[in-house]
């Protein structure tokens, strides 16, 4: 089912959680709502679910105005950050809950629960209680429970937020595979840009109740529409647009944005290069990061491949020249990133 968000606003007291949001989510997509806390991403998800009512605007699900429909009537599945499993019910009973509410015949329920237990690879654990499962297992049960009623839309609120890094990584890949099998229109909220890039077909970057950009992971990373997107998605050096620093750029813009791996280090001066001193060498494993001091004490980070690093033979204290391969500046003054 497709979802159309039309001019949706929501305020909590004085806090503008959503400010005239417009968004279209295509049928069958796997979309990430990405943003820092307080950006409105969870509120938007809960508004789609019907767990929050927008102050203004409308939400169209599958061509039907759902703005004032109750959660129960929207045919959505919702997965919570802290699983929200029914503690007093077994895993089987949890998964069967929605089917029992819909008064499906017991035989059909049993069959469906078996199918879903196989899908989430917890066949042997159907009679356990949620407290006896690990976090990752619980979240898979929560997913199965939401999928049991065959919802038109699957909504996931920071689904991996409460899990440790390793389990999170496994579950991400699993969710991606699951979506490729089940094809249900899915929207998930995350503050982790890596997670959004890895799992989603399309990313909606949100900030302070606004949508900053909608695009594929590649579009978001390579062609950020705003200063906020550039700095929130991936690492970035932010420099004041002072004349003389990277002087091939229009200096009228207030700041210049350069990704660390898009800075070239040279031993000799070059057109549009800037002299710098190597302050520190940081080994990141696959890459080497150099902390560089520019004139006027501006600090930038440059990421180099191991080969490049070996070729340059860098040491702390050394004089080098920095040349950006790619630098951006934005007409809009970014709303709040410099931190």
């Amino acid at each position: 089912m497709s979802i159309i968000i039309n001019q949706v606003s929501k305020k909590f007291g004085d806090f503008q959680a959503l400010d005239r949001i417009n968004l279209e989510i295509k049928e069958g997509g796997l979309v990430a709502l990405l943003g820092p806390s307080g950006s409105g991403k969870s509120t938007l998800l809960r508004a789609i679910a019907g767990l929050e009512t927008p102050d203004t605007g409308s939400i169209i699900i599958n061509g039907k105005d759902a703005t004032h429909l109750d959660v129960a009537q929207r045919n959505i599945g919702f997965v919570f950050q802290h699983y929200a499993l029914f503690k007093h019910l077994t895993i089987r009973q949890n998964i069967a809950f929605g089917l029992e509410i819909r008064k499906h015949p017991p035989k059909r329920i049993k069959q469906k629960v078996d199918e879903l237990l196989a899908l989430i690879q917890l066949e042997g654990l159907g009679n356990r209680y949620p407290a006896q499962l690990s976090g990752g297992q619980r979240q898979r049960v929560a997913l199965a429970r939401a999928l049991a009623v065959e919802p038109g839309v699957l909504l996931l609120d920071e689904p991996f937020g409460a899990l440790d890094a390793k389990v999170r990584k496994e579950l991400r890949a699993w969710l991606r595979r699951l979506h490729d099998e089940v094809h249900v229109t899915s929207v998930f909220v995350t503050h982790d840009q890596e997670e959004a890039m890895e799992v989603a077909d399309e990313i909606v970057v949100m900030n302070q109740g606004h949508i900053e950009q909608v695009g594929t992971p590649a579009e978001i990373y390579d062609h950020p529409a705003t200063a906020f997107v550039m700095s929130f998605v991936g690492e970035v050096n932010i420099l004041p647009g002072v004349a003389g620093l990277f002087c091939n750029l229009p200096t009228s813009q207030s700041h210049v944005y350069v990704r660390p791996h898009e800075l070239d280090l040279l031993h000799h001066e070059h057109e549009s290069s800037t002299p710098a001193t190597v302050k520190r060498i940081i080994h990141l494993g696959r890459e080497i990061q150099a902390e560089l001091a520019l004139p006027d004490d501006f600090v930038v980070f440059a990421n180099l491949s191991r080969e490049k690093f070996a070729e340059l033979n860098l040491e702390a204290g050394q004089q080098v020249f920095v040349k950006p391969q790619n630098a951006k500046s934005f007409a809009d003054l970014h709303r709040a990133v410099l931190s």
Binding site: V71, F78, F80, F86, V149
Partner: peptide, 25 residues
């Protein structure tokens, strides 16, 4: 309130939420 919200998203009415989710808890 998450268990109640989960039950609602699964189609339960207020009455069903009370008997099946709140009361057992």
């Amino acid at each position: 309130s998450e268990q109640e919200e989960a039950a609602r998203s699964l189609g339960a009415s207020d009455w069903e939420i009370f008997w099946r989710v709140i009361l057992p808890n």
